[in-house]
Nucleic acid binder design. Sequence first.
RNA 1: CCGCGUAACUCGUCA
Length: 354
Amino acid sequence: LYLFAQLVRKSRNARDLLQGKCVHAQILESGLIHERFLANLLVEMYGKCGSVEESRAVFDGIQEPNLFSWTNMLAVYAQRGDLQQAREIFGRMPEKDRVAWNAMIQAHARSGCLGKAKEMFDVMGNRNVVSWTTVLAALAQEGNFEIAKDMFDRMPRRDSVSCNAMMDACVQSQDFERVREMFFSMLEKDIASWTTILAANAQVGNFAFLLQLFHKMPLHNAVAWTILFLAYAHNGDLCMARRIFSMLPEKSLVEWNALIQAYAQNGHAKTTLKLFSFMAMEGIAPNSVTFLTLLAACNHIGLVEIGRWYFLSMIQDHHLVPSHQHFCCMIELLGRSGRLREAEEFAASMPAVE
RNA sequence: CCGCGUAACUCGUCA
């Protein structure tokens, strides 16, 4: 039914895995799981909520996958940069349309194979604005700003997304003059155009102008609010930051991470750690960014034991794989507190490179 | 209007 479709979309948009699972269970109960249309939505929902396994499980249960089933599954792998799985799906697709090709370009770009991505792009006969934007954003991501800007100039067609991607490339390359110019000359600004310029002003610490822009925006979403409360925190106004945070209708992982970061960066160790447990109480599972923030905070304050505890908890309780950065934080933490021996052991137990 | 691209949170050193 269309009611179910709405519910799945809602969970997908809110990135609410728990709610998504509930809806999935209800769909199973009603026997409507054989509606391919619903299954396709579930594949997408699980992907966006970060559960690749369940996404794949639903996909594998589809009797006769159609083009949407295939591309939904492909997009999940592409977004995560899982090139191997993406290739497998792409290879099995009975027909590969432009959308599938674009997704494959993204899969290559996200997995660090920018060269291959560009190659596919060059070989493609029916490129559209999405193909161009995918490559442009990937180039900017890797720091190839000049080539990215050149691509933008050569694009046959542009829309708000490609302009936003270009603006972000200018932000990253510190070309703020062009950011302003683009923003104010854009005819169709969407919410991402606004948040991009907010982020640009946050980056250079232009708080007053950021505030002005914030109030001029036609509507405010979670991204805008997060930028705003972080800006207050950056100014040392934790009170206001916290007040904004508590007003937010949906407090998801990123908002929590941002709040934790806000307190950490102002040196409020106790509150930082407390917030971490509040977050758990709200049923939000921490991710690797959360732990990196916490470890960095421990590092600055010198909380060796607690840092070590977080590191272990991250692996044992949350089944996260510590990255290069997590290890570096721990080594620095141990080293700074004079535990050179342990620091060395840590360094030795570190996986090669990343 | 079931699929692809853009925006917010993380340490390249608060020594």
